[in-house]
């Protein structure tokens, strides 16, 4: 989604107001949970729906 929007993860982190370290945790899938407010901010910044950035993977 970042490539589609031609945006760098650092820029996105700045827009949604999280640190680059937290952005790295999000991208690597190490995050245990995502706040609704963060999800809302990401969707707003990327102009997309939660389903576009979330994917269920069976372990």
């Amino acid at each position: 989604m970042l490539t589609k929007r031609n945006m760098k993860s650092k820029e996105l982190a700045e827009i949604i107001g999280i640190t680059t370290a937290n952005m790295s945790i999000l991208k690597s899938g190490k995050a245990k949970a995502v706040r609704f407010s963060t999800l809302e901010a990401i969707c707003k910044a990327l102009d997309c729906q939660p389903g576009d950035i979330l994917e269920y993977v069976e372990e």
Partner: peptide, 8 residues
């Protein structure tokens, strides 16, 4: 705390 730290 770890869970809270990993909640973005």
């Amino acid at each position: 705390k770890q869970e809270n730290d990993l909640t973005i």
